[in-house]
Computed example of a mutant assay.
Amino acid sequence: MRAAVGAAALAPLAACSVPGARKHVPTGAAEVAAAVRDFWDGKRKTGKLDFANYTQYIDADPADQSRHPTLEAFTRSTGIRITYNELIDDDASWFGKTQPEFASGQGIGYDLMVVGSDSYLTKYIELGCLAPLDHSRLPNFARYGGAAFKNSSFDRGNVHTVPWQSGMTGIGYDPAKVGRKITSWQDLLDPGLRGKVGMWNDAVQMGNVALLAVGADPETSTPDDWRRAAGWLRKQRDAGMVRSYSTATYQSALQRGDLWASLVYSGDVFQANQSGSKLEFVIPEEGGLLWTDNLCIPATAAHPVDALAYMDYAYRPEVAAKITETVQFICPVPAARDVIARDAAAATGERRAVLRSLSTSPLVFPSEADESKLRRLRVLDQAEEKQWNALFEPIYQA
Rank of each mutant, 00 (worst) to 15 (best):
A176K: 13
E31Y: 03
Q205G: 06
R194I: 00
A390K: 10
A73K: 05
Q165M: 15
H135P: 02
S117E: 03
Y57T: 08
E285T: 14
A92Q: 03
V364W: 06
A52P: 01
G96I: 01
Y250D: 02
I108K: 01
L289P: 02
A34R: 08
I323G: 03
G79Y: 06
Y57F: 14
G79D: 11
S262Q: 05
G192S: 14
L290C: 03
K181P: 08
T98D: 09
V354D: 06
E86G: 02
M206G: 08
S221G: 10
Y84F: 15
S119K: 12
E280P: 01
D89Y: 02
T75P: 00
L308S: 07
S277G: 08
D381F: 11
N85V: 13
W94K: 04
L130M: 11
Y54F: 15
A216F: 01
P304H: 09
S246P: 02
D370T: 05
P100F: 05
A147H: 13
S119D: 14
T27R: 11
Y144L: 06
K97C: 07
D225R: 09
G172N: 07
T222V: 02
Q165D: 14
T247I: 03
E72S: 06
A229F: 11
P163A: 12
N208R: 08
E371P: 02
S359A: 15
L374Y: 12
T70Y: 08
E286L: 10
I395Y: 11
A7L: 03
F149N: 07
P298I: 03
P100G: 04
F154R: 11
G6C: 08
K386V: 15
V209P: 05
A307L: 02
A9M: 07
S221V: 04
R342A: 15
A314M: 09
V264C: 09
F102V: 06
N273Q: 11
T360N: 14
A253D: 11
V204E: 10
R237S: 13
S136V: 10
A353S: 15
E368W: 12
G167L: 04
D217Q: 13
Q382F: 10
V114H: 07
G157A: 14
P284D: 14
H68E: 01
Q271T: 08
L189A: 14
L391V: 04
H160Q: 01
V242W: 04
Q56I: 10
L391A: 09
L49M: 12
S66G: 10
L188H: 01
